[in-house]
Design a protein around this nucleic acid. Sequence first.
DNA 1: GCATCATGCAA
DNA 2: TATTGCATGATGC
Length: 875
Amino acid sequence: MKKLILIDGNSIAYRAFFALPLLNNDKGVYTNAVYGFTTMLLKIIQEEKPSHMLVAFDAGKTTFRHKTYEEYKGGRQKTPPELSEQFPLIRELLDAFNIKRFELDNYEADDIIGTLSKEAEKEKWEVKVVSGDKDLLQLVSDYVTVVLTKKGITNVESYDEALIDEKYGIKPNQIIDMKGLMGDSSDNIPGVPGVGEKTALKLLKQFGTIENVLDSVDDVSGKKLKEKLIENKEQALMSKELATIFTEVPYNLTLDELKFGEYDEEKVVSLFKELEFKSLVDQFDTGVSAAEKELEELSFDVVEEVKEEHLATPAAMVVEVLDENYHQADIAGFALVHEKGRYFIPTETALRSDLFVEWAKDETKKKWLLDAKRGVVVLGWKDVLLDGVDFDLLMASYLLDPSHSSHDLSDIATRKGAKSIQADEAVYGKGAKRKVPETGVLAEHLVRKANVIYELKEQMEEELKKNEQFKLFKDLEMPLSVVLGRMETEGVKVDIDQLKAMGEDLASRLAELEKHIHEHAGVSFNINSPKQLGEVLFEKLGLPVIKKTKTGYSTSADVLEKLAEDHEIIRHILHYRQLGKLNSTYIEGLVKVTHKDTSKIHTRFNQALTQTGRLSSTDPNLQNIPIRLEEGRKIRKAFIPSEEGWKILAADYSQIELRVLAHIAQDEKLITAFKEDMDIHTKTAMDVFHVSEEDVTSMMRRSAKAVNFGIVYGISDYGLSQSLGITRKEAAKFIERYLASYPNVAEYMERIIEEARENGYVSTLLNRRRYLPELTSRNFNQRSFAERTAMNTPIQGTAADIIKKAMVEMALRLEEANLKSRLLLQVHDELIFEVPPEEVDKMMKIVPEVMENAVELAVPLKVDISAGDTWYDAK
DNA sequence: GCATCATGCAA
DNA sequence: TATTGCATGATGC
């Protein structure tokens, strides 16, 4: 049996809009109505399993009803813009679901629905009408049910004849008479003044229709009522007419065209992703169904032996590695797409082919990839040099908008309007189930990927040029990815025996501490469990609760420090935590990822992740090796040069972020301070506390340092108060005095927010961008966060630009000068090298020179550098 | 097996 | 209710 669902699009969108808080996605697009609409739609599809569907919308402002009554729907509130802007998204959603939508000039959604429900009724189809508008109840029949939203959006009630009778005591076709009598303020239908629902129903039960009421008006009880009815006779009849749904709308659809069933799940999921409907993505994105859907045909050849014709330039290239960690990983296969054809090349076929290997290392043969570093490194491990990388889609996508959490090819393809392809996860599975599929599936997927890269290259470069980001892309990030690839492949040598020895020492001390703590507590428990620890401290020992987390008591270090006086156990716990951290994260963690044969660690630098342009490091993270406390700093003793007699050399920018601030804000006082190479925190203390250099106490310097940090982060009085342990008022006073001392900084902070609001984004020195749609959010927290980000990102991002430029330049210099020294690591404002002894002096000169001259600012850049036998000693 | 939380390490 | 990150163990589904 056929089942048709007819949805009143406008009505449901309105309901959803007002039922849900104003959500928006990271682009600042409001999504609450779309979200409500979607959940309702999914619920209907799931529960009703319709064979046919249609969503009707109101078309223009005027309809045939306005001819009858000019004031129809007059005095209505204008649709809020926050809602209007969501209608195109709702249409997009329906298209993705392959659900027919329909609107027609001169008619309302009601009329379309009425017409089609009558039509379907004739064919004896089951019909469900979904709306928030009671008017639709007039359509109810043996075949037609009307589903009305009750409260919220998915809470609904289904009306059949019985329920209408129960609620109102009338038949569905009497709804219009009811409306005629009582009117409808929301549509500005007048009805009969003084007649409400109660009176209307009473009259209808007695007389049946408005016409009968008016004909037999003498039998109506109540003098006043009778007068009103006579007086408003025409108005009542007109009101009935207005409320009557017109069921003969001219339409050029057949019922068959409303068929619902097949739709592009990937399209739906990518739309959900764009809208940030995370919970809905999870419902869909199981990957199984997406894998079954049909894609446009694409022809390609499987290469059995590499020949000239398979290798052209330029070529889009896919080097597929399923492991997230590409170091020493297996290559699943290759794909090449160029003007001569599309090819899948099995791994062995490619690697044993001299032709292929020569082509790969020929820099005149241009290659276009997604995540070039990944390709370069994985081939590097197979002793195949990949050169001539001319375009990296990953970097392009990242630079155009770093906010996208995924730069997976299928996501980029969707965003950029290329041919849609399956997500890797859908083809390969995820987690433990991830595996190389059968060759046919793999081959096709890889060729499709290469095809999309080929298709998108020009467009992406155009977009970069339009944003004035092409230089950043081509001259900075692309060369940098090669440098990073080399750093990763080279790896850092560790003294594994020393690490293990430190681990044994820590383990025995931890056991001792654990014993003490359990004794003090009088009970044995897991100290690493915040839950158990909280119970022991705050329930068993009755210590005062300072702070709570959403799941229980907070036991963080700042809380425990406040309790240190109250109980001896606390300092043991703090010590246990400190050592436990070192042992699990830094000893055991590093031992786990150190290569058995070479004793080297190969991190991966993510070049397309942070919102500011910094790098990040994973597997392991070598950008957070301890340094502040001596105990942890010792870990650095285990990081050693990879060759006998070599040295570790560390060079870090001094106060790069505050220097960048001085430059951007063009603040004379700060610029002078840096030109004179003053201690910047002391200088700040002098200016904020109005004292001379000799009178700056260590306390004052400490406060000034915290204020400087705050300025860089986008200051808030609360944040500063937390960091200094003072009241918010005192913190606010500090900030005020700082901004009064550095008026150009104050001006910068205001200007950058204003600019960001106008442009929608902030930029760094080298034109890196970050979009900040939340600057216009009505949510205070969101907006404040965006404002701090607007202040911080140009600073942090420019600092990132500078060190990246220094790295590329440094790599060039090493090559030109034929030096053996190698760049190993970057830690945001410092570069770590390993250096043969005979090059130490040279490097101590070259490195600061390159770093300090990476860019020219209104202030000098300063680099501190030192060398030692281990990373620890390079201080 | 996977996701989330609290915690703590770095610049 | 300060910026950017990543890894850990515990916990719960």
